[in-house]
Design a protein around this nucleic acid. Structure first.
Length: 323
DNA sequence: CGATGTCAAGGAATC
DNA sequence: GATTCCTTGACATCG
């Protein structure tokens, strides 16, 4: 069994002064070239920390598709060479990259304008990965989106939108099960009808699993949507506990309701015992990379790796050795 | 300097 | 039909 990559999303907390992208307001003229310099410094950090998978910021291209700011729309083309060399750097490092557009990118919105904007953003994310010359394992992860007029209608709108999607964007697009509407069975069905690959999010599955599909079966369902020769990936996180939730609410100054566990929120860290049980149980013998979604980002990844090593699951070159 | 408001952006629940 | 929440981090502004 080959090693398994562990990754984290966007923000680096393990070292200071490693911003993820150019965050300036449009008035200050932010640019992809600045974001890419910062991304390069993050790559160096990832190499030092032996972290082999990373999700870059969905705002890497500042205002890259903003409808009122066309002067920002050519940034990928303006950075062709920088992107190519960064991509080569990533390939040299064996770094697996991905993108995950924000909640505002809703491909199956009932508003045609919102859906068109989503298409433009997905095209932009795909052009980034293409310009970096990355292989098919570098994907753009998206939720199915809106359930307006019911989940079935939402699913149909999604299918129609994917049909209209330009090839480059469609080739990078991967769908993820969400925590309240579209289950792993739903996204597997969409995959069957579109050929899109599926990222299984275990926490979302535990929040929303109307079909009652056991973890191993859900995992296999998702992994089967990836072609032979590609390493699938999943999202893994631990739920925020009642204690953490209470602490957060106290931080704000509102106490209108009893504080109950919000099992859908991501915890700061990853529970190493649960993760080990997952690897030794439902995931045993299966091959995939793991994107961790913990509030503590890379700090959570590094801590988890230590704890796993102490429990007899060591990692080498950023890839976890697993049963 | 610390606190507070704002940001490009959607959807759904609530009133 | 309009408002509020969700949830997020950092910039911008103000005292």
């Amino acid at each position: 069994m080959p090693g398994r990559k562990l990754g984290f999303a966007v923000k680096v907390l393990g070292e200071p002064d490693l911003p993820s992208h150019d965050t300036r307001r449009w008035q200050s003229g932010p640019h992809l070239s600045v974001s890419l310099e910062r991304l390069g410094r993050i790559f160096d950090y990832l190499a030092r920390a032996r972290i082999a998978m990373y999700r870059f910021s969905s705002s890497l291209v500042p205002y890259g598709t903003h409808p009122d700011l066309p002067q920002f729309h050519g940034q990928v083309e303006e950075c062709t060479e920088k992107l190519a060399s960064l991509g080569e750097h990533a390939r040299t490092l064996g770094l697996r990259l991905s993108s995950h557009p924000s909640q505002y990118i809703v491909l199956n919105s009932t508003s045609p304008e919102v859906s068109r904007r989503a298409v433009r953003d997905l095209e932009l994310q795909a052009r980034l990965l293409d310009a970096m010359g990355l292989g098919p394992e570098a994907v753009v992860v998206l939720h199915v989106g809106s359930a307006e007029a019911g989940p079935e209608a939402g699913k149909e709108r999604f299918l129609r939108a994917v049909e209209r999607l330009p090839g480059a964007a469609r080739g990078r697009l991967v769908i993820e099960n969400d925590d309240r509407v579209f289950s792993v069975a739903d996204v597997a069905d969409i995959s069957k009808r579109t050929g899109l690959r599926v990222v299984w999010d275990i926490l979302h599955h535990h929040c929303h699993d109307p079909e009652g599909i056991p973890d191993r079966e859900a995992l296999r369902l998702a992994l089967a949507t990836w072609p032979a020769g590609q390493v699938p990936k999943i999202h893994y996180s631990s739920p925020k506990t009642a204690v953490e939730e209470r602490a957060r609410k106290r931080g704000r100054r509102r106490e209108r309701r009893l504080v109950l566990p919000q099992l859908r929120a991501h915890a700061d860290m990853v529970d190493p015992i649960a993760f080990e049980q997952f690897l030794r149980g439902p995931a045993r013998g299966l091959s995939f990379d793991v994107m961790l979604e913990a509030k503590a980002k890379d700090a959570a990844l590094l801590r988890l790796r230590e704890q796993l090593a102490a429990r007899g699951l060591p990692s080498e070159d950023g890839a976890l050795r697993t049963p």
